[in-house]
Design a protein around this nucleic acid. Structure first.
Lengths: 263, 263
DNA sequence: AATTTAATTTCATTATTTGAAACTTTGTTT
DNA sequence: AAACAAAGTTTCAAATAATGAAATTAAATT
């Protein structure tokens, strides 16, 4: 009844369409009510629902015959939430910032005292550098890493700083905790961090934290360039854009995080 | 490589197996790494991933080739969370309580100042009554409804009480807000509520709220019987069991709700 | 007990999935 | 920059799974 268009992606697409329908009821629902919304014939709808139940994407109450969201979907959801929630939420904002600036943009979170890159947008003229979504890098010598460490609470920050290797990638890399802590203090005060060829020669960046409304740390994002094309002063022009985008992502993430309960 | 067993549920089962694999990496991951975990041949794995991307259950970064959890899964997750999160979390606890007591058990949440039944376990000797998962009932004359209203904050409680119809289903139904508010005060003090044939003749129950550690209201649960088989005093024996179960569900729900962010 | 409505099963037809192999692209080494 | 290796993508005939009209059974409702 909803649509008559051909369905893409075969059985998988159809099964997911039914998942959406069940979800859209916002409450346990019976077969016939699903069928009314289903673009598929009765037996197909029936079997697809059976499959989804067998896969625990839906649950089916034997007594009442009601279908509801299943435990596997909740488990996937919970896990996705913990590990990747920022990336899908931030994606449209990264796109916008990428279009506006044409520069290389990274989104990252902390992972075991290291920087985990969640997403990336390439510059119009890409820079040859060593990063990608999914890649793990050091925290103490990247713009995003420093921005995140600087905005942790004192206890967490000490714990994370203690786990840094302080290996000297370049002559400009911080190589001891004392100097590095002073840098973090400065970053916390200014709200921005810079990577001045501290990880890779020629590669520079400006980064800001992504914070929730109460200051909870969600991650960080950066705009990257190279010494051939820009100076730190040039990058500083992006500070406002970056902070605005980070603020929007943080607010958006916070809104998603806190479902209203109890009616 | 993970398993050689036959796969149930055709393409849908296979696609979901790949979803699980991508999720298990907890971070964006490349095709070849997925392939190593995949029980399916390369082209099948490849096409299933394409399908999942096309369906936005996964995202695929064109530049880096990384697969990650997609926006549709996050959207489903978010919605499932808001609307049904208690049911799958509570299911095993309801099973245990059902086995232990052999009685009819309900799990409910507030929905627009009404009671929405999320799940139900039938007694060994079922009672003929008018409830089911997915059903919406009144809040002011059911055990779970009263338990929930009693544990709202003052503002929310007034708002919800104002929306009750106070229709007199039975001679024992509360029919005005003043008496009802006194009842809610008593329930708040004792931590339990009873339905003494207030909605349906012969049907009685004992109910407790499901609360988070800081007192956030998640829902309520009840044990139901009939006047032929039990008295309110008999039901009161279940108070401790009910409260323990509700406490476990509340703690479990709270743990799921609050993902740790920022490493 | 009769009737309507909802849920489930059947089965020959039709459409999709399958996977070995070939091919292309991308990244690495000499 | 050529040669090599690894990752990613496409092809196509054979094998398999999905389809849906119709029949059947089960559950409400009269």
């Amino acid at each position: 009844m909803t649509t008559e268009a051909e369905f893409k992606d075969g059985t998988v697409g159809k099964a997911l369409a039914l998942l959406d329908i069940v979800e859209s009821f916002k409450a346990p629902v019976k077969f016939n009510d699903i069928l009314k919304q289903s673009p598929f014939p009765k037996p197909s709808t029936y079997r697809l629902l059976q499959t989804l139940v067998s896969q625990e994407m839906l649950s089916h109450n034997e007594d009442s015959g009601h279908y509801a969201i299943g435990s596997r979907l909740i488990r996937l959801a919970h896990s996705a939430w913990k590990n990747a929630s920022l990336a899908p939420i931030a994606a449209p904002y990264l796109d916008a910032l990428s279009n506006a600036t044409g520069e290389t943009i990274h989104l990252a979170k902390l992972d075991n005292a290291q920087t985990l890159y969640l997403d990336k947008r390439n510059a119009l003229k890409p820079i040859e550098m060593f990063s990608n979504a999914g890649k793990i890098g050091p925290a103490y010598c990247t713009g995003v890493g420093k921005a995140m460490l600087a905005h942790l609470g004192p206890t967490a920050r000490d714990k994370h700083v203690a786990q840094q290797s302080f290996y000297g990638y370049t002559p400009k890399t911080f190589t001891n905790a004392a100097d590095f802590n002073a840098e973090l203090d400065a970053i916390k005060r200014s709200g921005v961090s810079f990577d001045d060829e501290e990880h890779e020669p020629r590669i520079i960046c400006i980064a800001v934290p992504v914070l929730g409304p109460q200051g909870a740390l969600y991650g960080a994002m950066s705009i990257t360039s190279s010494t051939e094309r820009a100076t730190l002063q040039d990058l500083e022009q992006y500070k406002t854009d970056l902070q605005n985008t980070a603020q929007q992502i943080g607010a958006s993430a916070a809104a998603w995080m806190l479902p209203k309960l109890g009616g």
